[in-house]
Write a protein that binds this DNA or RNA. Sequence first.
DNA 1: CTATATGCAAATCGTTTGCACCTTA
DNA 2: TAAGGTGCAAACGATTTGCATATAG
Lengths: 162, 162
Amino acid sequence: MQSYPNSSWKYTVPKLSSFEERQADMAARLKAAGHKLTPQRLAILKVLAASEGHPSAEQVHARLQPEHPSMSLATVYKTIALLKQAGEVLELQFSDRDNRYDGHRPDPHPHLICTACGAIVDPDLPGLDNLAEELSRRTGFAVSSHRLDFYGLCPVCRAKQS
Amino acid sequence: MQSYPNSSWKYTVPKLSSFEERQADMAARLKAAGHKLTPQRLAILKVLAASEGHPSAEQVHARLQPEHPSMSLATVYKTIALLKQAGEVLELQFSDRDNRYDGHRPDPHPHLICTACGAIVDPDLPGLDNLAEELSRRTGFAVSSHRLDFYGLCPVCRAKQS
DNA sequence: CTATATGCAAATCGTTTGCACCTTA
DNA sequence: TAAGGTGCAAACGATTTGCATATAG
């Protein structure tokens, strides 16, 4: 459960594994794929497992500065690349700003994106996978994933505007 | 109407204005916004009005080489920027490849994207705007647009794989 | 004529890569 | 100790920008 300041809006995320469980899962997956578990990687996994605010690579890096002052941004990108290969992180690509990452829910799911402040949240909106199946049947495409973003002003930025 | 080679798949796009009408609309919009209608711009509008294959800026440029050998890629980007401002072109952003543009249907609508060859088509899939409205009501976001992409292998690339 | 557009080349910026030095297992 | 990881700096590539010249209205 999570809520916006200055707003009565609340939304729930489906009951999923805890952050700790997610981090452990991701670590196990990397190890299984033959990768080493360094302190840097574990720290990056921890941030991505929480994915609070759907951070960019730079935000992950910034968040770890206190604990790991010498960690380089390249290491963050390299770790994210491994996780992408393993299907353990969802990447939201943008061409006009940093990509954003969700390691807590790596399966495709809808996002609400504030066009003013860049906030990204997970709304509760079930029943989309059916759409993908239907499309596969109708079009001959072998649909394997999807992306659904809604763009608009979040309650906070809405208030600021008026 | 349009179809893939080596495939019985067909899809239809909603009945819309013809390419010529779209081009004229876009030109009128630019003029109304105080911009000049140069031969380069008109040529770019023509390609975007058709939007066959949802071209990238580079593809638009390449397609116009024969007629306008001296046209620069920067001019294509600048014209697209004007059209984006005017809401006359839909931009599909990607961070790992060129952005793609649709000037024929500038309103948000679903896309089917082949992860192998990059083909982009418009499937017929009505009833999504309701979703956006519902989300607005539920979340407090002022949802103004959306993006829905389905990723998979198109029939042609599917055949090549097996 | 004058504001605006074009074309070129340089700048931007997120991301990736090469490589010498470290670390995990 | 060997395979793989880290950090740095340079390279990349799509897009944007500055500016001198050209052109639409």
